[in-house]
Design a protein around this nucleic acid. Structure first.
Lengths: 222, 222
DNA sequence: TAGATTGTTAATCGATTAACAATC
DNA sequence: TAGATTGTTAATCGATTAACAATC
């Protein structure tokens, strides 16, 4: 009889593919909004522009708890708000990055993550040439400082861009300091306790998908 | 009656998840091989070490056309060879990278791709401060040179790391020059003819998955 | 031989797609 | 009202997992 889900406790796992498509819709809608030409948009239109079949758009939006109006479509501003809320982008999450090499520097310098709810506050490295300097507008601190700063600031997300041999060691430091989610750009399979989430960003894997597809396309036979 | 598949023409689409796991096995096996302690390994053992259930390991290896010996397991060297062959890593594919910013530089400097069948030969950029210099041991050329060099060298893979506003334009240049596969690191949905493959590397999407999971974990309710 | 492990066929599970009634 | 579009329930499809016979 209770009308809301407060106590139903239905754990609805969100499909990862949906989660990965939401930022795509978001970006598209933002652009649309900035152009300021349309107030309402249909799933069909979104699908056409994004190469996604309309029914999937509807499903994804449903999961993001967005509602539209039959015949009219979805309100662009409302949709943007829904996605932001669903993904928790209204309150940006702070993160630390460890390993200010090339890739780490690229990530430090890329401010676009802020739009997706992530704010990289600072970098950490042990290289004397980097410590104390700014990279991409972010200060680089010695790794020694990581535990105390993480605790003090209540940081929960760590980005790991150190060379492979140090990956596990640095991850341990992160976890000990209270970090609960690690975005892992190394090739190392991290051992972490069950209450820590690891997202393994495997560029090699993507590369494999691409090059295999190309190979199949270029020489489908033999 | 014919015993091989030469004329059966069964187009067996390879599951992308499998394709993404193969490099993981590969790396693991390589390490194992270098340690030189074991000649044969079972799917169970691989699964244990990699946090993948054994049956999935077996299935993946089956797809990669590897065979083992009951009771004994799979030959490590043979497995490595099978994966290399299946993914076409025996002949490294050459690639050009356009856009030598932070991310582009990181990729140029990262030589690990060579192990996965990709060899980034050179970078291209329009920034005078970069053209003519080396980044990560790779020469950076002006974009003007891209078409001729691509044609002359028969390059088929292009890596796109330019700022978003130039993405489509540069992609067009690539395609016109004969590139058939684009590894797209920009946020732009590229329009390409059907005979060109685009692999969209969406870091924001990964980030969304991570941060949503963290959010669910930290406050499962409300 | 006995037992472990592969190879293969079947069952399950979850995401995608289809169908269609509800509705503005 | 008529028609387009949403919202929801059902069907399909493909990847994962299970079961088990074959085999070294």
């Amino acid at each position: 009889m209770r009308e809301d889900k407060r106590d139903t406790q239905v754990i609805k796992p969100i499909p990862e593919p949906t989660l990965r498509r939401l930022p795509v819709y978001y970006q598209y809608l933002k652009k649309l909004h900035n152009e300021g030409k349309v107030d309402f948009i249909s799933a069909t239109q979104i699908g056409n522009d994004l190469n996604i079949i309309p029914i999937q758009v509807r499903k994804d939006l449903e999961i993001a708890e967005a509602t539209g109006k039959p015949k009219l479509g979805y309100s662009v501003t409302n949709l943007i708000k829904c996605i932001e809320e669903f993904l928790g982008w209204n309150n940006v999450t702070d993160a630390f990055l460890v390993g200010a090499g090339n890739l780490g520097s690229a990530l430090l310098g890329y401010n676009g993550f802020k739009e997706y709810g992530l704010n990289i506050i600072a970098g950490f490295d042990n290289d004397e040439n980097k410590v104390g300097k700014e990279i991409g507008g972010k200060m680089v601190f010695p790794i020694d400082k990581l535990p105390e700063m993480t605790r003090r600031m209540g940081i929960k997300i760590g980005i790991l861009t150190v060379p492979a041999p140090y990956a596990q060691e640095v991850a341990n430091i992160m976890i000990k300091a209270g970090i609960r989610a690690i975005w892992n750009f190394t090739h190392v399979k991290l051992n972490v306790p069950p209450n820590v989430i690891v997202q393994h960003e495997n560029l090699a894997a993507s590369l494999v998908v691409l090059s295999k597809r190309l190979r199949v396309m270029l020489k489908p036979d033999e």
